[in-house]
């Protein structure tokens, strides 16, 4: 009865209603699409293109989850969220998963009752200054004017960094990255601080990228990762292992080009387990056996997603760095598929 009342009311406006329950997976299946919270616009990570299609590194994770759950990477509703609305939207069930370059911190995980499912980008807070300022280290920034995005962990890290080094600074709070860029380029602040990936992405779009340097100091750890609601472990597992599948696929050499071929069966039992030709890992997650196959075929492995959105060949031009596989000296280390 309750449901029909609900649908009846909402049919008036043709809008959808959802039930927040501990069964996000079933609910997503019943609804037929995944609702995914992303940033309102951050170059390389999530932004709508001229056709209104969402593109970016975080967006790719949403698509991967949709491919794993529904077998269709396009069955995603993207919900643009601001830094202020993101956690509420997740907690209230407006989005099923939040992939909005969010830093994994203790208080967010525990106190805000969210569940981080892993790290899709290891980042750290850095500083960018114009080259002709002649600054080579962040420790020379005493008295500088610093542009900073409000409502993020960077704000707190900045305060900690300057006060622990006994330096003074003047914060210039801004709302979006685009705004910060404008202020910084006009010289309204000496320094722009945000995650190093964001700095690189921003610098890449300057008219004269060589005129700006990113200082060597990284003042914080910013493990950025997707997150889900606390208390729905099944759904958390789905999101977590989708991420792991993308990382493992890169390690095992499975790409969107060769996945169809490998799905026919290979000599490597781990690949077989990952792609569902051996064992029933998908079934354990409550998904189809070919879930990871869909993810890799439709979205790609971690490397393909990285290179396609933020890698060296894109305007963003990030190198893998910490985000290389553990075998290449990075931090990406997917647990075994077994």
């Amino acid at each position: 009865m309750k449901k029909s009342i609900f649908l009846g009311t909402l049919a008036v406006a043709g809008l959808a209603a959802g039930f927040v329950s501990a069964q996000t997976l079933d609910e997503v299946r019943a609804r037929g699409n995944l609702s995914c919270g992303v940033s309102t616009g951050l170059a390389g990570f999530s932004m709508p293109d001229a056709n209104g299609e969402w593109q970016g590194f975080d967006v790719a994770f949403c698509r991967a989850v949709a491919a794993a759950v529904l077998g269709d990477s396009t069955a995603v509703e993207f919900v643009p969220l601001t830094t202020q609305t993101r956690f509420t939207a997740l907690a209230s069930g407006e989005v099923d998963v939040l992939a909005r370059n969010t830093t994994w911190t203790f208080s967010r995980d525990v106190d805000l009752r969210l569940e981080f499912v892993g790290v899709n980008y290891y980042d750290g807070q850095g500083f960018m200054v114009p080259r002709d300022l002649g600054v080579t280290s962040a420790l020379e920034l005493d008295g500088a004017t610093v542009c900073i995005q409000t409502g993020t962990t960077t704000e707190l890290n900045l305060a900690d960094f300057f006060s622990s080094n006994n330096m003074g600074y003047e914060p210039v709070p801004v709302e979006t990255n685009a705004e910060a860029q404008q202020q910084y380029l006009a010289g309204a602040c000496d320094v722009y601080t945000t995650d190093a990936s964001g700095l690189a992405a921003t610098r890449a779009t300057f008219e004269d990228p060589a005129g700006h340097v990113v200082l060597p100091e990284i003042v914080s750890k910013e493990p950025l990762g997707p997150l889900v609601r606390h208390g729905d472990s099944e759904w958390g597992d789905v999101a977590r292992w989708t991420l792991n599948a993308m990382v493992a696929a890169e390690e095992l050499g499975v790409t969107s080009a060769n996945v169809a071929e490998m799905a026919a069966g290979t000599d490597n039992p781990e690949i077989n387990r990952l792609l569902g030709t051996e064992g029933d890992l998908g079934g354990m997650l409550g998904l189809e056996a070919d879930w990871a196959q869909n993810v890799i075929a439709q979205v790609g492995n971690y490397d393909e997603v990285f290179e396609g959105n933020i890698g060296a060949s894109t305007p963003i031009g990030l190198s893998r760095g910490l985000n290389a596989q553990w075998t290449d000296g990075g931090l990406l280390y997917a647990p075994p598929f077994r």
Binding site: P48, Q182, L185
Partner: peptide
């Protein structure tokens, strides 16, 4: 959002 896209950044 348009200003965030790589084409029209700035």
């Amino acid at each position: 959002a348009i200003r965030a896209s790589s084409e029209w950044n700035g």
